[in-house]
């Protein structure tokens, strides 16, 4: 951290510069918060207030009844699609970390003559982002009969070459002494991994978990292609179909958006430490 080092005396900037800096930050912060304000304002207002000729800063009375209206409307499968999103995101996060974590550890720590070839076979998949091959992936998943099916939404996303690569890099830097002690105590690779390595990697795993969860929750193109029946929609597909079909009132749409963001805002506020680390960790690869 920069704060540890004392800057030379006189290095301190003029108070004017500092004030300008805060002014710029405050303006930028206000702009960044405008969309959140709009979600709340529109979600808790009436149609008339939203379309008022003079901008209404906030509805005169907060229309809490909009919630009841939204959730009691049988033509709006918001809760069901939220449920699907929770299921898909949790399963995908856990499954991806498990499979990629195991693979990363095997590649980093188990001596095997073909390990190099396997590593290159995995790294090669990093050259082509999954989104670019969504058409052929759709073909494979539909041939498996997994359209509009939880398996089709979750399983193809589990095998992330990038996550396996990140785990490998992390395990390469993991202190060997800990593992050697475990080996002396008679643990095999499997036991060492679960009893020594995983319990000591909590921060790293949490960082990747937060990133993976947010990615799953916000994913759109793949669920759009796979979840064709309304019963299998994730919340993003549901919102998108409300938006493009315009069959809902504006306040309902915005309230639905607010509800869809809520789980992530909770994750964001409680786990931001891991999220920031996760971004720094995953973004650095390039």
């Amino acid at each position: 951290m920069i704060g540890h080092v004392h800057r030379p005396a006189g290095y301190r900037r003029a108070p004017m510069t500092s004030a300008l800096r805060y002014l710029a930050l405050a303006v930028a912060a206000a702009l960044f918060l405008v969309p959140f304000y709009l979600v709340l304002r529109n979600g808790l207002a009436t149609e008339a207030e939203i379309a008022a000729p003079d901008w209404k800063f906030f509805p005169d009375t907060i229309h809490w009844e909009n919630f009841a209206e939204l959730f009691s409307d049988p033509s709006v499968p918001l809760l069901a699609s939220m449920g699907n999103s929770v299921l898909v995101s949790v399963l995908q996060t856990v499954g991806q970390l498990l499979l990629c974590g195991l693979a990363g550890y095997g590649l980093a720590r188990i001596p095997y003559k073909h390990a190099g070839k396997v590593f290159y076979a995995i790294v090669a998949t990093l050259m082509i982002p999954a989104a670019v091959t969504f058409v052929p992936s759709f073909v494979v998943v539909s041939s498996l009969g997994w359209l509009s099916d939880l398996r089709g939404l979750v399983i193809p996303g589990l095998f992330s070459g990038f996550t396996a690569f990140l785990f490998r890099q992390y395990f390469l830097a993991f202190p060997k002494e800990l593992e050697e002690a475990a080996r002396i105590d008679g643990l095999g690779h499997w036991g060492t991994f679960w009893r020594i390595v995983v319990p000591n990697s909590g921060n790293f795993i949490a960082a990747l978990a937060v990133i993976s969860f947010i990615g799953s929750w916000n994913a759109f193109l793949w669920p759009l292609v796979i979840a064709q029946d309304q019963s299998s929609w994730t919340v993003q597909v549901a919102l998108s179909s409300f938006l493009t079909a315009q069959n809902l009132n504006v306040h309902q749409l915005f309230l639905a958006a607010a509800v869809s963001i809520l789980p992530l805002v909770i994750v964001f506020v409680t786990l931001q430490r891991f999220l920031v680390r996760g971004v720094a960790e995953t973004g650095i690869k390039g």
């Binding site: 916000n218 759109f220 938006l243 915005f254 958006a257 963001i261 805002v265 920031v276």
Partner: peptide, 15 residues
């Protein structure tokens, strides 16, 4: 500045 990361492209499109 980091908070929008929690939003999806769908939600942002809606807004």
């Amino acid at each position: 500045f980091f908070l929008p990361t929690a939003c999806s492209y769908v939600v942002a499109s809606l807004i």
